[in-house]
Design a binder for these strands. Structure first.
Lengths: 244, 244
DNA sequence: CGACGGTTTGACAATCATCAAATACAGTGG
DNA sequence: CCACTGTATTTGATGATTGTCAAACCGTCG
């Protein structure tokens, strides 16, 4: 990292850490990454980065802060489709004339920058990292569907926090089982398809039972191993689909 | 279409129609499409096409029949992540060593074939069609999240059927507002995050109120315009995200 | 006929939403 | 410093939506 970038070092670090983690073990010179990061742009919390249908001239790399993909219904109901964390990429789904497929709003103050050229296929490392990132993005959407479709409120919160923990670890933003989660209970509710009141009561239950704590923007998972065990309840694949 | 393909004409037609529709208005010679379709492979209902983690050597084009992306929980709960209809592509999300990100099972008898080479970027038409298909796939996942997160059982069914109607129209499989939906109420329940009992009762309500009918594998939407209006309730984008 | 998968019905319970208000807490300006 | 404002959290009372369990019904197929 040179001159201009140096002072931003702690800023770009999480994004760099995440992409490096995704590029491994093929390793790589993620050089283009460093060069492109000289000019981070700042976005204020609550700003809308993209509206559905907006063209996205180039993919964006989220350097710091949290954002969300949001959809609003005519009667005011709101659903957060997914959360965007430092190191996540925005708008890498399509190859040609990419377009925002959902609104994206800043949940906190943000730093973003154009994602270094992904079309430069010479950098295999970076290309693979983007590929994995795309893959993870879909994975998180699917996880969200299972949460909303089949988990209880209690399970939804536990499952989401476990996911956030793992995602933050990827970016080096969670080293212990205590980590920042700058979500209000309102936002949590809109993420999990619940009401803020019910989220509040369920959080109390989780706290009371010593599962996890969420307050003042910090989450603490009290028994991550047990939690992951209970929550990562994938069934072994079954050959007959309709079996019960 | 030549020789070998001709006898399969009605078979490949929907898939061809869909990809052509997606390629337009850039039009295109979708020539590689025709050539690759000579050897459709048949899959029996209930077979599992892919398990999570399976490598997908090449993208697959679904020619006829319905499939589903499924996830099962350890205690037997099941969530259908998304439905796959004729003309849909499987495994086009990743560029490098693609891997099945969810189990895929055949809901009906299927005909599939390898998707004609997408890396042949010379065929701009086909490449664009695949790109749009990818984009639509994500769109449907997001729609599913909103359904599960914020719609009532009544709305979920109406919304899903409207989506299916539009998707089938793309492939030329629905010309009127009456079209085939080979889903049992059990499968509908697992798609919509409900129980089969509740799906049954809600379907009765929808029928009673003249909104739609679903029986014997056929769906009928009684006032598609009004339905689309009620159900496509996107709110106008709002600049302040947290506004209420 | 009997078995099977799918649909339908009923009685009842649990989860979660709604509405309204109280409390806590940080920031702002006098 | 304190009252004032706005936002976030918490509590209570009540009701609607949806789930659970169990059984009956219905058509198809061997």
């Amino acid at each position: 990292m040179q001159a201009a970038a140096v002072q931003q070092c702690d800023l770009v670090d999480p994004a760099f850490a995440r992409l490096s983690a995704l590029a491994r073990p093929h390793d790589s010179r993620l050089s283009p990454l460093e060069s492109g990061l000289a000019r981070p742009q700042r976005i204020a919390a609550r700003a809308e980065l993209f509206s559905e249908g907006d063209p996205i001239p180039q993919p964006i790399l989220l350097l710091s802060g949290w954002a969300a993909r949001v959809r609003r219904l005519a009667d005011g109901r709101r659903q957060i489709l997914g959360l965007l964390l430092p190191g996540d990429l925005i708008g890498i789904a399509r190859r040609h004339d990419p377009v925002a497929i959902s609104n994206i709003v800043a949940l906190t103050d943000l730093a973003i920058c154009p994602a270094p050229c992904q079309d430069d296929l010479e950098d295999v490392g970076l290309s693979k990292a983007y590929d994995r990132s795309r893959s993870l993005e879909e994975h998180y959407l699917l996880a969200q569907i299972v949460r909303l479709g089949r988990l209880s409120a209690y399970e939804r919160i536990a499952d989401l926090l476990l996911e956030l923990w793992e995602r933050l670890k990827l970016a080096g933003l969670a080293t212990t089982s205590r980590f920042p989660v700058p979500l209000t209970q309102d936002l949590l509710a809109d993420t999990l398809g619940l009401t803020n009141v019910h989220v509040n009561r369920t959080l109390q239950a989780l706290r009371r039972e010593g599962v996890l704590t969420l307050e003042a923007g910090m989450a603490t998972l009290h028994d991550t191993a047990a939690l992951a065990d209970q929550v990562h309840h994938r069934a072994p694949p079954l050959k007959s689909a309709h079996a019960d």
